[in-house]
């Protein structure tokens, strides 16, 4: 059985959930081999999780340069593994960095690139959700290796024990003339809430929230549900909430079990980022708001009445 490489997404010594989803998808296609690129000592902390989700091999590519350059260290490691291991596919998270790593890898190895897959079958055919969920397509690569970016949250992670054999891989020296140097880094405030694209529940506010202070209503509801907070572009542009929380066409794509939209009209560009959520609940005072066309449960009403009551009721049931 041929190998299927999975680029491990990790932060602060932990495997991010999307990696486990990718390992699960990789098992359908072949033998999953996790590829860890990071500073020295990274892989050791991640090995147990990777093995518990079926990694038969763990390629350990550690070097100080991994954190000093943008994108190219990962591309270099994967490209050399593609030529030595001849994998059927390379799976990469469809994150900002992941998409660029996958793109460069496809160019360098002469492989086809399948972008933002929401599912993947044993033949390497990927399912795609296009134009904000309005259209669907399936596609495959005609090349020896397929490079696929997979949307976080679209494959359910299933545990399976793997051999987890660690194999050292080299991080080729970076050429400062051709690579960009990272000279400073201000980590995103981790906070206590789950990461937007990984959260099982997302609670989002729109222009209807009315101000940055009022977003506290959204945050309280989110915290009662253990949710991440999202925002529409109108809310971001009005300065109610920071840009990295924007959901939609030009923001994040989320696919949680539950998406709660408050004071969001449901413009097509917003729907583009949340339409594949499993269950959608909307609160809007306008009964004609398009968000109700895709909501499983729509509440016509004032969010400032409904959301606090909802928060209290959830808290009550917890205790």
């Amino acid at each position: 059985m041929s190998e299927v490489l999975v680029l491990v997404d990790h932060a602060a010594g932990e495997v991010r959930k999307v990696t486990l989803e990718l390992l699960t998808a990789a098992r359908r296609l072949g033998e999953p081999a996790a590829v860890v690129v990071g500073e020295s000592g990274t892989a050791g902390k991640l090995a147990d999780s990777l093995t518990a989700y079926g990694a038969s091999k763990i390629y350990v590519a550690e070097s100080a340069e991994a954190g000093q350059y943008l994108i190219t260290p990962q591309v270099d490691v994967l490209a050399s593994l593609v030529s030595s291991a001849q994998p059927a596919a390379v799976l990469v998270p469809a994150s900002i960095d992941g998409k660029e790593i996958a793109g460069r890898l496809a160019v360098r190895t002469g492989s086809g690139l399948l972008s933002e897959a929401v599912d993947l079958d044993a033949e390497g055919v990927a399912a795609h959700s296009l134009f904000g969920g309005a259209y669907q397509a399936s596609a495959k690569a005609t090349t020896a290796t397929t490079v696929v970016t997979v949307l976080p949250g679209s494959v359910e992670a299933e545990a399976a024990s793997g051999a987890g054999e660690q194999v050292t891989a080299e991080v080729p020296a970076q050429d400062a003339g051709r690579a960009a140097t990272v000279t400073g880094h201000q980590p995103a405030e981790a906070g206590d809430r789950p990461e937007l694209t990984e959260a099982g529940v997302v609670v989002s506010g729109g222009r209807g929230v009315g101000s940055a202070e009022n977003f506290a209503v959204i945050e309280k509801l989110a915290d009662s549900l253990g949710a991440a907070v999202g925002a529409s572009r109108a809310a971001v542009d009005s300065g109610y909430y920071p840009p990295q929380f924007q959901v939609g066409q030009t923001g994040k794509t989320v696919s949680p079990q539950l998406y709660v939209a408050l004071g969001i009209s449901g413009a097509i560009q917003h729907r583009a980022g949340m339409q594949t959520s499993k269950t959608i609940v909307a609160v809007n005072k306008d009964p004609e708001a398009p968000i109700f066309d895709i909501a499983d449960y729509g509440m016509v009403g004032d969010l400032f009445k409904v959301a606090p009551q909802l928060t209290d009721e959830v808290e009550k049931r917890k205790s």
Binding site: V300, K305, L310
Partner: peptide
């Protein structure tokens, strides 16, 4: 889906 109007018990 379902669409209901808040009559005071919407959150519940």
């Amino acid at each position: 889906g379902v669409k209901v109007t808040d009559e005071g018990e919407g959150g519940v």
